[in-house]
């Protein structure tokens, strides 16, 4: 049990995918203008990440290894990720049209979110078993959601603030992201 908790803490805080590993920066900058949208994006990514890390594990262990097709893993992973994202997109379109509109292009772009492929590849690289893979994917997604919501809240607040003109918009957002990243470095050594 302990190792699962450690995996969770490690992926959420210490090795946060966005702020420490710098994966998935595209939606991090793109969908963080509004807290609601950021939370929606986080939840969608959580769903996709957890499911795709499990699926890619199964695909790798039970299809690619027996047939000695390990060298095709990237294609296989992308295939499964794309399928999950496609499914999620349809589900969101049906259940929450407003969120669908807000997420816009970033929703199908989860497919190319490097965090998603990164998790699948890292799972293989670190030799995780099935449950570990699931926890690793889930933890990564929770970490992603956490920083998305934190960052979006900060951006909402900054929006109303007196930001010097050259720093308005993206520059101040990047500075904030950098400071957040520094802050998350502080978790190093926790695990």
């Amino acid at each position: 049990m302990t190792e699962y908790v450690i995996i969770l803490i490690s992926t959420v805080l210490v090795n946060n995918f966005v702020l420490v590993k710098f994966l998935g920066l595209c939606p991090f900058m793109g969908v963080s203008k509004k807290t609601d949208a950021a939370l929606g994006m986080g939840l969608a990514t959580t769903f996709v990440l957890t499911l795709s890390s499990v699926m890619s594990y199964l695909l790798y262990t039970y299809l690619l290894i027996p047939f000695e097709l390990e060298y095709l893993k990237t294609i296989g992973f992308i295939l499964s990720i794309a399928a999950v994202v496609g499914f999620t997109e349809m589900a969101i379109h049906k259940s929450s049209p407003a969120l669908y509109q807000v997420l816009g292009i970033y929703l199908p772009l989860i497919t190319t979110n490097c965090a998603v492929l990164g998790v699948a590849l890292l799972n293989i690289g670190e030799g995780h078993n099935f449950i570990e893979s699931a926890f690793y994917g889930f933890g990564a997604a929770v970490g992603f959601t956490l920083v998305m919501v934190l960052f979006a809240s900060m951006r909402e607040r900054i929006e109303a603030g007196d930001v010097p003109r050259p720093f308005k918009g993206a520059p101040i957002a990047l500075i904030t992201a950098g400071l957040m990243s520094l802050a998350f470095m502080g978790f190093g050594g926790l695990v």
Binding site: L59, L63, L64, F67, L69, L72, I75, G76, L79, S80, A82, A83, G86, F87, M90
Partner: peptide, 14 residues
């Protein structure tokens, strides 16, 4: 064959 099968399966799912 495997990738054909996979594509088919995902296609059906979608």
């Amino acid at each position: 064959l495997i990738f054909l099968g996979l594509s088919l399966a995902f296609g059906l799912l979608l």
